[in-house]
């Protein structure tokens, strides 16, 4: 007989069962014994306590506690991020949101992106404060301290945003300047080439070239003048117009951000929260 056959036959010994009558009688006997000696049906609350106790004991084991910790981390990461973003300044999780935003800003290596992100967050905080203060029910004696604190916070956030936007604009202007000076260098080369070609007039051409270079600054209105070599006279007019348009837009853009910030602050102080919120949205769009 092989091992398999032996095991198969052994498993058939499972058919050896006690009488059903015996099992029933014994069951009744046990029930009586249990009932007489304090056996009881445990309610659902007690069952819950037992379950909690077992879970606590299980979590005391190293492997289980590590697994639970990882699970909490992952869950917190998945749900916490979205929940944190929606937390408001008067929420308990707001601090966590601020910390996480700070961490994101600090880990952004690109300077421009960092300024943008920091300004964006500052505007977002300001918007949240405006939202809370626009609620009429919030304005009560109980919340007077909180209102004062939120007002202070609002000013800080707005100044942060303003600083960030100014830095961004400064950087943009610097880029414009460097790009325009590189254009000027090219013109210088062209002018000098022209002057070298025009030998008959030689000196005059040179002088003209020097004059042109010297005059290649902003005029009274702050508009840059392109080089006016003979060959480029026709093109520069169009280019000048384009440049003028671009510069006006930049100026308008620059002044509008500052103006908007001033307007927002004024509206906030006058408790015109809805309008302040609208202006904040405009600023946000500008940032983007």
């Amino acid at each position: 007989m092989t091992g398999k056959q032996l095991i198969t036959n052994l498993r058939e010994l499972k058919n050896e069962q006690p009488d059903n009558d015996f099992l029933k009688e014994n069951r009744e006997l046990l029930l009586t014994q249990i009932s007489n000696s304090g056996g009881e049906k445990i309610g659902s609350f007690k069952r819950f306590l037992i379950a909690f106790e077992n879970l606590a004991k299980a979590s005391a084991k190293p492997a289980m506690s590590i697994a639970l910790f990882l699970l909490v981390l992952v869950t917190a990461g998945v749900f916490g991020a979205s929940y944190l973003e929606s937390s408001k300044p008067n929420d308990s999780l707001y601090i966590a949101r601020v910390l996480s935003e700070r961490m994101k800003v600090n880990t952004t290596f690109n300077e421009e992106a960092r300024e943008k992100l920091a300004s964006k967050y500052a505007l977002s905080h300001a918007e949240d404060i405006v939202l809370i203060l626009s609620d009429e029910n919030f304005h009560s004696e109980e919340n007077s301290e909180q209102i004062a604190r939120l007002s202070q916070d609002f000013k800080e956030e707005i100044s942060k945003a303003s600083e960030g936007i100014n830095n961004l604009e400064r950087n943009n202007n610097q880029e414009n300047i460097t790009s325009s000076t590189s254009n000027n260098n090219e013109d210088r080369v062209e002018i000098s080439e022209n002057s070298s070609e025009g030998n008959e007039d030689g000196q005059d051409v040179k002088d003209e070239g020097v004059m042109i270079i010297a005059e290649n600054n902003k005029d009274e209105n702050g508009i840059e003048i392109m080089t006016t070599s003979n060959e480029e006279e026709e093109m520069t007019e169009e280019e000048v117009i384009e440049m003028e348009i671009a510069q006006v837009e930049d100026q308008l853009k620059g002044t509008s951000s500052e103006d908007i910030i001033k307007e927002i602050t004024d509206l906030f102080e006058k408790d015109k929260f809805d309008e302040a919120k609208l202006k904040l949205n405009v600023l946000k769009e500008i940032l983007q």
Partner: peptide, 28 residues
């Protein structure tokens, strides 16, 4: 573990269901 904890707390229901489940096996 849960069933054992309840049994230790004299849970009648758990005891009887354990008997129903393991009675014939122990007998065998």
């Amino acid at each position: 573990k849960q069933a054992l904890s309840r049994l230790k707390r004299k849970d009648k229901e758990v005891f009887i269901s354990a008997y129903d489940k393991y009675g014939s096996e122990i007998n065998r």
